[in-house]
Amino acid sequence: MNFLSVLISGLGAGATYAIIAIGYTMVYGIAKMLNFAHGDIIMVGGYAMFVTLALVGHPVAAVAAAILAAVLVCVLMGVSVERFAYKPLRGASPLAVLITAIGVSYLLQSLAQIIFGSASKMLSGLQIAGHVMLGTLRINYVTLVTLAVTVVLMVALTLFIKYSKTGRAMVAVSEDRDAALLMGINTNAIIAITFAIGSALAAIAAYLMLAKGASLANTLGAMPGIKAFTAAVIGGIGSLPGAVLGGILLGVVESLSYSIPALAPFTDAVEFGILIVILLVKPAGLLGKARREKV
């Protein structure tokens, strides 16, 4: 197999991980919690698209409507989960919050199974088929779409955080929540906005996964969620560029490992092995800041 095409498909997979990892890393940075239900928001987005596709007749309109519906439903779900499950635990021990997040994850998966059944579904209406040949190099259209969407989202998010008033407030809350309060920042609102952004990105990730041909089941977001969390930690949790770097790195490693027959069955082990190695060498992750001691 062509090394370059392996690399490019790895970039595509990595870009999707990066989009999910941003949700983990932003929530960690601003709300100081690990939202283990983040992956399941992807699954919620998947079913939102499934329902919309069934309702809208026109094929092109259906895809647009499905993406829009997924974003809306995911944002609503993410913000509700924060409001009703995590907000009451503000100031509680991190362990209580962590266990609650795992509970929310199972709750969402079980609800999806009760409502939609356990048989997995193919959403062929969302799939992007076809490829372009550059000489001998074959690039799938879905990879190009994924990379383009990721770049646009990253640029937009970076500009938003750097130049908008809300973005500045997000940085302030992530650095020092009490000091942010003293600036007049409604920290609870900023945390809710963070969940909204992360959930919208999860909806986009759901679309990209289904466009690539993933089948929809209540566990759609489970493994990608864990991989993206790994990516966020590799890059340095709390760091936005770190989440992107970690996601891309993980995607490329995954793709390379799949392409080597001897390694292919152990791809997951290779990916998590890399996490262990990186944490041994750089405990704060590749772009993570070593924790400042507070006096």
Partner: peptide, 26 residues
């Protein structure tokens, strides 16, 4: 009412200008 907290608690990762803008957040 503004509060200058103990230990200054400025936002280290933001520019001086952004820190001042945050003072005017409300």
């Amino acid at each position: 009412m503004a509060h200058v907290p103990e230990g200054r608690r400025i936002f280290q990762g933001l520019s001086v200008y952004d820190n001042l803008l945050l003072g005017a957040y409300s």
